[in-house]
C-alpha cells in the first residue's frame, strides 16, 4: 500500500523554481532515501511534504488523504513526523520537555511514559540528561533528541532531514543503526542524506535529486552500484 504519494510537486521561493515536478512514493514499511548535492532541493521536498512550504502545483497524498494544502500543524496529527534540517530542537527547554512536545497532541499520561521509556532505551544518553537544557547538549546528543522527539508520537511516516550532518563517524553509524531499528519497529522512513553511501546501504529504494528534479530512481542496491552515482555522490 502506498503510504505517501508525491505527484508532480512544484515549489517556488519567490521567482526561484526550487523543485520541479517532483514525484516520489513511500510504501508502508519502507526506508526510502532522497539523495543529492547541496541545494538540490532535498530539504525543500521535505518542507513541502510536511506542510511548512506552500506548493504551487502538484498533489501530495498520505494514506490516500489529500494533504497538499494542509499546514504542518494539521499534517502532524495524521501520522507524519519530521526531524528537520538543523535539528530544530527547543534550545531553552529541557530534554524531557522537548520529548513531551514530540507527543504534544497525546494526552494519555501512561502512553507518554511508555514513549519516554522507548526513546530512553534507544538513546540512554538522553535519559542521563533528561533534566538538562537541550541547548547545552553536544551536537550528537541534539541529533538524538531530534530523532527521539520525532518518534515520540509513533508516527507512521518518519521523515529525517540530514540526521548525520556534523556528526563524528562513530555517531553516524549509531544514528543509522537507530534508523534501521525504528523501521523494524514498523515505522516507514523517508530519509534525506548527503551521506549517500550510508543512506543507500540501508534504503529499500532511493531517488536522486539534481537541481530540483528527480533524475534517477531505483533500489538502494541498484543506485549504489550505478557508476554515475558512484562518481557524482560517492566520490569515485
Amino acid at each position: 500500500m502506498k503510504l505517501l504519494s508525491v505527484q508532480d510537486v512544484n515549489v517556488f521561493y519567490g521567482s526561484i523554481h526550487a523543485i520541479k515536478d517532483v514525484s516520489l512514493d513511500v510504501e508502508k514499511g519502507e526506508i526510502v532515501t532522497l539523495i543529492g548535492a547541496n541545494g538540490a532541493g532535498k530539504s525543500t521536498t521535505m518542507g513541502a511534504i510536511s506542510g511548512l512550504l506552500p506548493k504551487k502545483s502538484g498533489k501530495i497524498l498520505f494514506k490516500d488523504i489529500d494533504i497538499t494544502a494542509k499546514p504542518a500543524e494539521d499534517i502532524t496529527p495524521l501520522g507524519i513526523a519530521l526531524s528537520p534540517e538543523g535539528r530544530g530542537i527547543f534550545p531553552g527547554l529541557t530534554v524531557e520537555d522537548n520529548l513531551r512536545l514530540g507527543a504534544y497532541l497525546k494526552k494519555d499520561k501512561e502512553y507518554i511514559k511508555r514513549q519516554y521509556e522507548r526513546v530512553y532505551t534507544m538513546f540512554p544518553r538522553l535519559k542521563e540528561r533528561y533534566k538538562q537544557v537541550s541547548g547545552t547538549l553536544s551536537g550528537g546528543e541534539q541529533q538524538m533528541l531530534a530523532v527521539g522527539r520525532a518518534i515520540m508520537s509513533e508516527p507512521e511516516l518518519l521523515m529525517l532531514d540530514e540526521p548525520s550532518m556534523g556528526l563524528a563517524p562513530n555517531l553516524v553509524d549509531f544514528i543509522f543503526e537507530i534508523i534501521v531499528d525504528i523501521n523494524k519497529q514498523g515505522t516507514s522512513i523517508l530519509l534525506v542524506e548527503q551521506n549517500a553511501n550510508m543512506a543507500l546501504k540501508i534504503a529499500d529504494r532511493g531517488y536522486v535529486l539534481t537541481t530540483g528534479s528527480i533524475v534517477m530512481e531505483g533500489s538502494g542496491k541498484e543506485l549504489l552500484e550505478n557508476p554515475e552515482i558512484r562518481k557524482a555522490y560517492l566520490g569515485e
Binding site: 500543524e73 502532524t76 496529527p77 519530521l82 527547543f90 514530540g102 504534544y104
Partner: peptide, 24 residues
Amino acid sequence: THVGLAIRAVQQNTTSARLMGIKV
C-alpha cells in the same frame, strides 16, 4: 501547564512548534 509548554515552544522555535502539531 500543557498550554504553557506550547507557549514556551512557540517562544523558542515557531517552525518546530508547528511540526509538533501546535496551532501557533
